[in-house]
Structures are given as structure tokens and as C-alpha cells.
């Protein structure tokens, strides 16, 4: 059964129709990369999956729960299983790195403070930032901040991870360290949906690449196929521009 099932998803901002009819099923342990020109709706699609954007019509099911029509209380519950990593990191500046990571599990009373801190330290080890546990986010580089943000999302033990252009705000020399953490995560079997401009990452890590343009999924397939032998003219044009 699919982890994430998107059916006939439409999203408009006022007059502007950003997502026109999206159908997508993501399986457990699958890594999906969403590519496409800016303004094509790929971030909006991602944000509809955890209801940061409210779909205009259609359904988004995660783990069998329809998040589009759910009550606020249920949405909060569903979101606990959907991790999200943002382009701008969005770490909480008034908390230390460790507090950032243990904050949600403790505040939602899912773990005791001690349990959460132990888990946070474990996660920091995973993203190779153990020594930064007690510093504040502003003292970290962009790449380090993004790795903490990944650890923060993982602290909720999510079933699915959403990445919204996680390396777009980074200096070039820091892109690699973040992508490496994501690669490790993919290898461990995390279900991941990644909006990205990193074609190398998509080629190497994705099980399936989705090309979105103008609110539609134009083409999708395994990376060798989509990058090696794109069929649609718009895909070809886009790849010619970015590769």
C-alpha cells in the first residue's frame, strides 16, 4: 500500500491555479525527487502533503489518513508522522541545538525530557554534530543548521520526510554535507519526497523522479530514464537548461 496517496489534487491561490490535477502515489521506503522550473508548483505540492497549504480540492492520504478534510486536531496528529525540512532551516533561534531537537517530543508529551535529550544526542551523532548540542543556531553554518533541522524532524520518528529545496539556501561548499545526510537516510529506508534542484542527487538517490511543470506532473520515471531518455518536450527543454 502506498505511504502517500495524492488524488486529483488542486490548489489555487485566489485566481491563480498552482496545482491543476496531481495524482501521485509514493510507496514505503521510496525516495521521490520532484524537479521542475520555479513557480511550477512543486513546493506547493509538498506543502499540501502536510497541510501547510490547504488543498482546494482532491485528497492527500498519508498512512491511510486523509489530511485534506481532517479536523485541526487530527491534522496535528498526522503531522507528527510527517517530517519536514525547509529551505530556510527555520530552527528556533531561542533554543539550543539540543532543545530544538527535543522540543516537539517533550512539548507534545511523547517523551520525557531525559528520553528526548538522549534521542536528540543520538540524532546529532547521526548528522555528525554531537559537539554542537549546547550552542544556539546562529552560531552554526548554514549546512550545520540544515543538518540540525533534519535531526529535529527525525526526533518525531516520522514515517515520511518532506524536503523543500533543502540545499537551495546554502553556500555551495555546504551542499554536500546536507546531501550526504539525506543519502544516509535514504539508504536506511526512509520514505522521502524531495523537492530539489540538485540533479546529481536526484540521479544518484531517487527511485523515481517527477517532473512538474505548470501545475501538472508532466513526466515521471526512474532517474536513468527521465534524465537519460526524457520523452516529453517540456522535460527535454527543462533538462537542457539545468544540466
Amino acid at each position: 500500500m502506498g505511504k502517500v496517496k495524492i488524488k486529483n489534487l488542486k490548489k489555487s491561490f485566489g485566481e491563480l491555479e498552482v496545482l491543476k490535477d496531481i495524482n501521485l502515489e509514493v510507496c514505503e521506503r521510496e525516495v521521490i525527487c520532484i524537479i521542475g522550473p520555479s513557480g511550477s508548483g512543486k513546493s506547493t505540492l509538498l506543502r499540501c502533503i502536510n497541510a501547510l497549504e490547504v488543498a482546494t480540492s482532491g485528497t492527500v492520504e498519508v498512512d491511510g489518513n486523509d489530511i485534506t478534510g481532517a479536523a485541526d486536531k487530527d491534522i496535528n496528529k498526522y503531522r507528527q508522522n510527517i517530517g519536514m525540512v525547509f529551505q530556510q532551516f527555520n530552527l528556533f533561534p531561542h533554543m539550543t541545538v539540543l532543545e530544538n531537537i527535543s522540543f516537539a517530543p517533550v512539548t507534545l508529551k511523547l517523551k520525557s525530557k531525559q528520553e528526548a535529550n538522549e534521542k536528540a544526542l543520538k540524532l546529532l551523532r547521526r548528522v555528525d554534530l554531537e559537539e554542537k548540542a549546547n550552542v544556539y543556531p546562529e552560531q552554526l553554518s548554514g549546512g550545520q543548521q540544515q543538518r540540525v533541522a533534519i535531526a529535529r524532524a527525525l526526533a518525531m520518528d516520522p514515517d515520511v520526510m518532506l524536503f523543500d529545496e533543502p540545499t537551495s539556501a546554502l553556500d555551495p561548499e555546504m551542499v554536500g554535507e546536507v546531501l550526504n545526510v539525506m543519502k544516509k537516510l535514504a539508504k536506511e529506508g526512509m520514505t522521502m519526497i524531495v523537492v530539489t534542484h540538485e540533479m546529481g542527487f536526484a540521479r544518484e538517490v531517487a527511485d523515481r523522479v517527477i517532473f512538474i511543470d505548470d501545475g501538472f506532473i508532466v513526466e515521471q520515471g526512474p532517474p536513468q530514464e527521465l534524465f537519460g531518455a526524457p520523452k516529453n518536450e517540456r522535460t527535454i527543454n527543462f533538462l537542457n537548461m539545468v544540466l
Binding site: 503531522r79 519536514m84 522540543f103 516537539a104 512539548t107 507534545l108
Partner: peptide
């Protein structure tokens, strides 16, 4: 920054907790 509320909500926090634990402490500063 709007991203602060979104980050808190994406972790599953209800609006009230996101406001009192994430937004207001920063706002008061």
C-alpha cells in the same frame, strides 16, 4: 518569520503551543 510557525506546526504542534512556545518568546524579545 513565518517559517517559525510553519516549522512548529510541521512537527505536529497545535497553534496554541506553537504560539506560546515558539512565537511569543521570540516576539517578546
Amino acid at each position: 518569520n513565518k517559517g517559525q510557525m510553519e516549522a512548529a506546526r510541521s512537527l505536529g504542534l497545535p497553534y496554541s503551543l506553537a504560539m506560546t512556545k515558539v512565537i511569543l518568546p521570540q516576539a517578546v524579545r
